[in-house]
Design a protein around this nucleic acid. Structure first.
Lengths: 289, 289
DNA sequence: TCGGATTACGTGCACCGTAATGATC
DNA sequence: GATCATTACGGTGCACGTAATCCGA
């Protein structure tokens, strides 16, 4: 077996062509490298160099050896990289969610119980979340539909009620209840981060132009400067100027009420039991409020 | 970069499960291995072991690392093997031949001019020899047909005249000339090492049973103990008892006369010029004899 | 004379083994 | 008490750098 440090020196020489240059690159002395090349030749047991009086080059065998040596170094690097990457992923809880809102609610709860872990979160469709969970691309997922798979453990997390925020003088503001039907045809502002909500709205509002705005600050300014209705919810945290002088009315349709579910693989249930306990306690508190 | 000797120790531990067993396997002391495992953990920069008071095991990350470590060791081994194999092949002239006989004539000539090289020889069909030459599976090949390829350099080597050796009282022994036609239907002995000659004989002697014998000594005994004809040639070295009291008559057919050609890749012509020179001098001598 | 390779020589560190300690069964 | 892991300590080999030498452009 030939040691890595020798191979590094050997490959450095193979790349630079002269001992002195390679020694420079490696930050070692020329004699040290000269000796190392002797040693590596000895360990291979074959001649690797053409040695002239004041010039040393790789022979054909040496070139072959250098190619393989690079592979060894590459394998060594890969070992280090992959191991560290694995360790990092082991210390990270990867959360997938069907929308930002419930993820933002859950993250502080996870942090409380897994304070040493890093958390990453991303938004995707329920289907992708479920398949990703099975492939272990996610550790925890937040869904808005109950999954049917038996290998997935699932509990209610929180619910969200879609609402519409209207200027007080809007012709709908006086209504007791509002349904999607009432809104169809009216231009309405919506936040781009609402995920599946947008799909639900589009489904029920075939004649409405949805004015989707990704940036919350911009959205807030537009609301402030206009008399346009904007989608809202009982969970959404809205800037004050978005609600000042306005009324917020929940939508009466069944599909405007969503329950979020937290899920993990059945096999990981034990690992995340503290989180599931925390959210059920949490739910209780919110329900009674 | 993590050194090979550390990886060897790490993998040894991964395989044996306890430090003491692994230390035994490695022929080092237990403390030395304990220190090495600390060191490798330090170099990875992540935890690789579950350490209990009197028990140490790989954790999940450690298992991953061990798998990659084995790959590194494998790459190191492969580098050594392949390099040495290349060096050996560089020091070996690989000769392919359509028959044993011309190879046996050529080998001493090669040895004379490449005294430091090892020589390996094998028998194959002309087609395989030519394709093998192009793939550099052979350095030199002996053919019995002129190749058409322009990238192959080819020169006459020696010729061989097929003959038949008969008991003096055989009814064909008195004939001036004998052709395949005269022999068709007669049982004839032949040596298995004759390569393509057997094919030629079978082609012309559809009614003859060829009694092929691989072992020369056995063949010789059978000849001695019987009155069967046996194939022979001007080049074949036959034991005395195979010819005593017998006559050898060359076959008159054109296809019973073969010229062997020595060939190499055009690009290697220079390398083997001394051999080509030697065989042309050799041919001249034999031709005049 | 300068740049490149090798040889000679002294040094320090890193790894090793022995011995001792701690822990678990 | 037996087995296993870790800590302590002293020795040694090996890879290093500096200096000197040799060789060729």
């Amino acid at each position: 077996m030939i040691e890595i440090f020798l191979l590094e020196q050997f490959v450095a020489f193979a790349k630079s062509g002269t001992l002195s240059r390679a020694a420079m690159d490696l930050h070692i002395s020329q004699p040290a490298l000269s000796r190392s090349m002797k040693k590596i030749e000895d360990e291979f047991g074959v001649s690797l160099f053409n040695r002239e009086k004041s010039k040393i080059t790789l022979n054909d065998t040496g070139k072959i050896a250098a190619q393989y040596a690079e592979k060894v170094l590459e394998a060594d690097r890969e070992m280090l990289e992959k191991t560290i990457a694995f360790e990092r992923s082991r210390r990270t809880i990867i959360l997938g969610s069907c929308a930002f809102l419930p993820a933002n609610e859950l993250i502080p709860i996870i942090q409380e119980h897994f304070c040493k872990m890093a958390i990453t979160a991303e938004v995707a469709s329920d289907d992708k979340l479920i398949s990703g969970l099975k492939k272990r691309l996610y550790h925890l997922v937040i869904l808005h539909r109950l999954p049917t798979d038996s290998d997935i453990y699932c509990r209610e997390f929180i619910d969200e009620q879609l609402a519409i925020t209207l200027p007080s003088n809007h012709f709908l503001a006086a209504k007791e209840t509002i349904s999607f039907h009432d809104l169809d045809g009216i231009s309405i502002l919506a936040h781009g981060g609402s995920g599946f909500w947008l799909e639900i709205c589009k489904e029920h509002l075939s004649n409405t132009k949805l004015l989707v705005q990704d940036n919350m600050d911009t959205l807030s300014e537009i609301v402030d400067a206009s008399s346009l209705p904007v989608f809202n919810s009982n969970r959404a945290v809205r800037p004050r100027d978005m609600t000042a002088g306005r009324v917020t009315i929940p939508l009466s349709d069944a599909s405007a009420h969503i329950t979020y579910y937290l899920a993990c693989l059945n096999s990981e249930k034990g690992r995340y039991s503290t989180i599931f306990n925390a959210i059920s306690a949490n739910n209780f508190k919110k329900d009674t409020k």
